[in-house]
Amino acid sequence: MAQLYLDTLTGGLWKRIPPFRLVLGLCPALAVTMSAENGLGMGVATACVIILSNGVISALRNLIPHKVRIASYIAIIATLVSIVEIVMKAFFFPLSQQLGIYIPLIVVNCIVLGRAEGFAAKNPPLLAMVDGLSIGIGYGLSLTLIGSIREILGAGTWFGLPLFGESFEPMSFFVSAPGAFVTIGILLAVQNLYSRRRGEKFIQG
């Protein structure tokens, strides 16, 4: 039993780490990771939604009729996202202004619906929440990593702190949209190369 929880908890950190292994949730990963702070904020917001939605959906899994399950999941997820958005506006106003439209768009983040359908609908609430926590942490770490790389190379700062001297000329390419594709592409390639060396089975298509 404990082994099951431990496996679920660590699953999201490497075996199922989004967006690299699941290759879901790429839209926010590309769009909001201009800086490490934005990446972390988006990751935390998404993690909260996944944990809560997994918990609620798993608790209701035997009540919701199979035919209307997706509609029910979306209603629940949309509510949770709106609540997270309200909470962010009330307590982290500058961050919510920075992330803007991407906070409400967590509703259509495939990771949330994917975990609801793929895990929460088949497992008890506590385990589902552990899975949400693990996937959420994995996603938060990935977004912070992407954001850090783009911010360090593209702006010469990390979490807003200047890293290099005055003479450093930042490659502003990395903070613009194409930089996001290049960064994520390279990270995916590195990750695949490492996995192949270790002889792991690939999950992504």
Binding site: L63, I64, S72, A75, T79
Partner: peptide, 13 residues
């Protein structure tokens, strides 16, 4: 079930 879920969701919001 859908109505109840929608009702609870709007109440929470």
């Amino acid at each position: 079930v859908l109505s109840v879920i929608a009702g609870v969701c709007s109440a929470a919001l």
